[in-house]
């Protein structure tokens, strides 16, 4: 049994709610996530990747019960998360933590760092004040901060330091599972690497499972065991990280990978990255939601929404023409090897 099982999860938001729009019938539903399913095994990291507005963060927020799902279930250790109450809920609150994107707004500006980190301890444990203080120092050390940071206010720390504090707070109750919602996107590149390394060290030390939400494929590749690619609220492809990066089956994944700037000198500048904008979730296209931007699209795609097909035990893809995508890449690869051989020859 997997640690976390998300099954058929949907979340619709009512836009333009209220009494008057309801009477006028101008209420609209925004389908933030549609029929999302995945599993995370203990000690594993699942990367959730996609453009802004793909619904990545909503998935995290439903798992942590910030939102109730419209449909579907989230099971943690086999128990339906949204039916928990009382001490079971408190236990869930202890073992599932979240780190947010913007370190500058994810800490109470009027609380000293030490007080922020100690708060979950105060709520969930019966440690004495001195014990809490000791635990806070320990946690600060774990995330490579000094115990003296305890007496500082958030505005006195840098973004990287603040994100370390957020991580320390998340670790305070010995969690099993942490949702990382774009934890490094707001940080400098040099700081990003250090935070990512810290996260990997912590995962090893405390046997943590992560749901890593990011739009940055480089970061995902670095950290994740499995990757789920989201587009307009749906998972369009899911695979082990290595396979996904080497051999994408969905045209959207292919486009995302091609959009990553390649810093190799002389490397061919890819031209088949993504074009166009992500459509509005208020009014998703009929059929496959990616077809208006897809170069493989046929008439079938604008009518039939492709289901998420399971190709083998670990790989899933939602595309009518995934075989064409795969074949296309095989062609490209042989072309590349061919031309590099030629280049070698002329030198």
């Amino acid at each position: 049994m997997a640690l976390l099982e998300v099954d058929g999860l949907s979340k619709h938001f009512v836009v333009n709610g209220g009494v008057v729009p309801r009477l006028l019938g101008t209420r609209k539903e925004l389908q933030a996530i549609r029929n999302v399913s995945f599993e995370i095994e203990a000690g594993q990291t699942l990367g959730l990747v996609g453009e802004s507005g793909a619904g990545k963060s909503t998935v995290g927020n439903v798992i942590t019960r910030i939102y109730e799902p419209t449909n579907g279930t989230v099971r943690y250790n086999g128990a339906n998360v949204h039916e928990l109450s009382g001490s079971d809920l408190q236990a869930y609150r202890q073992s599932v933590q979240m780190v947010f994107q913007d370190p500058y707004t994810s800490l109470d500006p009027r609380y000293k760092i030490g007080r922020t980190i100690a708060e979950p301890l105060k709520i969930h444990t019966d440690l004495s004040k001195a014990e809490r203080k000791e635990r806070v120092s320990e946690l600060l050390e774990t995330v490579n901060l000094e115990p003296e940071h305890r007496d500082r206010y958030p505005h006195e720390l840098s973004g990287g330091q603040l994100q370390r504090v957020s991580i320390a707070t998340a670790l305070a109750l010995d969690p099993e599972f942490i949702i990382l919602d774009e934890p490094v996107s707001a940080l400098d590149v040099s700081v990003q690497a250090r935070i990512l390394n810290l996260l990997m060290e912590l995962q090893e030390e405390y046997e943590l499972s992560y749901l890593f939400i990011s739009h940055n494929l480089g970061v995902i590749k670095h950290l994740c065991d499995h990757v789920a690619v989201m587009y307009l609220g749906e998972i369009v492809e899911q695979a082990p990280t290595g396979e996904l990066f080497e051999n994408p089956h969905h045209p959207y994944t292919e486009g995302l990978l091609n959009s990553v700037p390649q810093p190799q000198p002389g490397g061919s500048k890819s031209t088949d990255g993504l074009t166009g904008e992500i459509p509005s979730a208020l009014n998703p296209p009929a059929g496959c939601s990616f077809h208006p931007r897809c170069s493989y699209a046929t008439d079938q795609c604008s009518v039939d929404a492709p289901p998420l097909e399971t190709l083998d035990s670990e790989r899933k893809v939602a595309c009518h023409h995934w075989d064409a995508v795969v074949a296309d890449q095989a062609d490209e690869r042989s072309e590349l090897t061919h031309s590099s051989v030629q280049n070698d020859g002329t030198k």
Partner: peptide, 24 residues
């Protein structure tokens, strides 16, 4: 985000309102 993070950590609603929102 810090209010949402408090919810995720299981901080009770009265405590969020009085100990966190009120001072802010």
């Amino acid at each position: 985000a810090f209010i949402r993070s408090l919810e995720v950590r299981g901080v009770s609603t009265p405590r969020i309102l009085i100990a966190h929102m009120f001072p802010n």
